[in-house]
Design a protein around this nucleic acid. Sequence first.
DNA 1: GTCTATACTCGGATAGAC
DNA 2: GTCTATCCGAGTATAGAC
Lengths: 216, 216
Amino acid sequence: MAQRGSYAKGVAKREEILERELDVVAREGYRGASVKELAEAVGLSQAGLLHYFGTKEELFTEILRKRDEVDIAHYRGETSEKPDSDVRDLRTGYLQIIRHNSEVPGLVQLFSRMAVDAADPEHPAHSFFLARGAELRDEFTHALAHQQRTGGLTDRIAPGTLARILQAVADGLQVQWMQDPTIDMAGIVNALFDALTPTPSDEPAPAPAPSPEEHG
Amino acid sequence: MAQRGSYAKGVAKREEILERELDVVAREGYRGASVKELAEAVGLSQAGLLHYFGTKEELFTEILRKRDEVDIAHYRGETSEKPDSDVRDLRTGYLQIIRHNSEVPGLVQLFSRMAVDAADPEHPAHSFFLARGAELRDEFTHALAHQQRTGGLTDRIAPGTLARILQAVADGLQVQWMQDPTIDMAGIVNALFDALTPTPSDEPAPAPAPSPEEHG
DNA sequence: GTCTATACTCGGATAGAC
DNA sequence: GTCTATCCGAGTATAGAC
């Protein structure tokens, strides 16, 4: 993956910067932060930071990419090393990530903001979001199809469509959550999964979704 | 609703401006448009436009408010004047609006952008979005509860939770759609409704959701 | 490789004439 | 009520020293 044969050192530092940046944004939040702020947060000048990432948008895109990298490593490597991870409960993993997100508001802000801006085909992050979305839905589609075959999920909807819906719900809830941080994103998504589970004929009925509060 | 006893004329023109602005944004799109562009689009100078709306954010907020006003008038007044409009198929109305949205990309962009920015409690549009969301979900909650009593909707999820989910799906799909305008937002939402409809025992089975394409 | 300093652009806001 | 003109700040990008 080394961008060029030369300066592997630079790449290493780049990664190091990204990791710290990730931390900073996660904790201190992103309010349309400027390059200067991000730079100072990692002990560099604006120019110093832009030395590694040519442009602001590139920097932000790389932060998001790094975030995914870390998340995937964490929520895929940790739990189990079983090769059947594809089948392994996607629902649980998804809920874990969503729960985790509510602990890194800055990243949620950055992500949501970029997702909208990157709608413009000219935006540097455009293809990143396209690819990311497609990948996500692909995994989902497979896992959902499997769950349908297993009988753990209603088959009254195409898996690919449901994948898209789950992506949309998560993204949409993030915006609602940013506006009102008291809502329980994971609980809501969980309730949706429940609603789409065929009536448990043999299962001990996993408690018919108490569903988080009944806010208007 | 007249802001002040005086200058009702100004208010009238304000409304007129908003209506035209709405049209402009809807057609020509919003790419982080500047006040100047918006001004020229309605034949005013930047200063002239800001005479009516003190600030950029106020202007944008008012455009969104106007949009809602128009949409509500259109999708509630037109169809029927029946007082039981509360009960009248919410699903149909929602799908209509979603379908309509895909014809006004600029407004979708503006809305999505603002929704994210307005997450900041300091943002002028913060309370607008809070109130708007609450209202929307309220209506949904009632209508969904009714549908559950009627048996047109699964009762395996709390109506208030589902309301939130539907809001999230619509918002989230808009972002996906901006990135890839080929997806069929209404079709996807429709598929979700179908999946949440109790198995039709007597109904002529509304065709088990062919569900729009099976994109990865 | 990193800094300081600066150049440049954009866009929102305001003053003041008409 | 609307314009022209101007100001000002923010923020990115770059030049060039060290």
